[in-house]
Design a protein around this nucleic acid. Structure first.
Lengths: 186, 186
DNA sequence: GGTCAAATAGACCAGTCTGTTTATTTATTC
DNA sequence: GAATAAATAAACAGACTGGTCTATTTGACC
């Protein structure tokens, strides 16, 4: 096997990563995925037991990629304020790159029923990690303060998807910056 | 006609209002709508020319109901700060009533493609109205200040849907309240 | 009672959906 | 070269999709 540079399983996941994010989970059919991945349908069901299972792997992979990018992007800044503001710059960059498709996790959330608990639990876990990221960066451990940043960050992502524009991110970043000047986070 | 207390067209829209919000737009089929509305399929296509058309009417109706409720809920408070905080209480109430299904408009946004411009334009218009609502309530006309509230409000709605909990709303409300104490909005 | 529009049930269409199965080919390893 | 596993194409199932159409019934008004 594997004269092909990328294995079928990987090609499937890569394609799902792209299509689920670009078009949404329900809108994207299994047939489009296998066709664009250049893979047989039986191969998909060899590596993933169902579409929902592929959805789970999609969220896991997306989380890994997204979080690693965030960490490496913010790692350059050492001081708290700069690090926080860098997170918003990361958002601007990813909006640009992905044409304002917003957050994979929140998009998925809108598509699932409350009782599809597997997917919901994963989404909640990953968002909690983002929340913890901000809390860890900030020196003052009060939840109110780190959640101010977390909520503004989440809103920035959502609203830039909505308006297909960077203004919500720029605005949120400026608000956070102003709050630092006001010593709100001390 | 009309021995029935509610007209077919109205029953269809009422049912769509419920099902699209509870289950999502793509997940909800035309057949479920007509079945639960107790209406013939031909009747649906007599009053609405397509599912997307029904989707448009759904957004319009939802906007009307939601906004009227917000206005009547916040109307009792006369002072700026109380009015703003009342908006968050409204969110708590609607979360309770609708079991944390979040914002109809943002949920729809996640399901559509960027080029389904009719739906996107409507969603943008309604969110812009909400943004204007906060700007109008607040005395200091600086955009940064009213958008701080708008963004926190939006995040509160989204995150309470995500975590199926009121804490994001309570948290956002407290943050806004603290910012008033800090004279951030002056 | 006659007229007309609104609403009905339900068959039907052409596609799409996820998922299964079969039979064949490909590539690796011993 | 034989054995083994991975991947393939393609047919197939069964359910569901949005939408059209026909033939019939209902109810209101004159």
């Amino acid at each position: 096997m594997k004269h092909h540079p990328v294995l079928p399983k990987e090609r499937i996941l890569d394609t799902a990563l792209r299509l689920f994010h670009e078009q949404g989970y329900n809108t994207t059919g299994i047939n489009q995925i296998i066709s664009e991945a250049g893979v047989a349908k039986a191969s998909l069901y060899l590596h993933f037991k169902s579409k929902e299972d592929l959805g789970v792997e999609y969220l896991k992979a997306r989380h890994k990629i997204w979080f690693e990018q965030l960490l490496s992007f913010t790692d350059e800044s050492k001081k708290e304020k700069k690090k926080i503001l860098a997170a918003f710059d990361f958002l601007i960059q990813i909006n640009e790159k992905e044409h304002f498709r917003g957050c994979s996790f929140l998009n998925m959330l809108s598509e699932i029923q409350s009782d599809e608990s597997q997917l919901l639990a994963i989404i909640q876990e990953y968002k909690q990690q983002l929340r913890t990221f901000f809390a860890d960066v900030m020196e003052n451990p009060k939840d109110d303060l780190s959640d101010t940043v977390y909520l503004l960050f989440e809103a920035a992502m959502q609203e830039s998807q909505l308006f297909k524009s960077q203004w919500p991110v720029e605005r949120a970043k400026k608000i956070v910056s102003d709050l630092y000047k006001l010593k709100y986070f001390k």
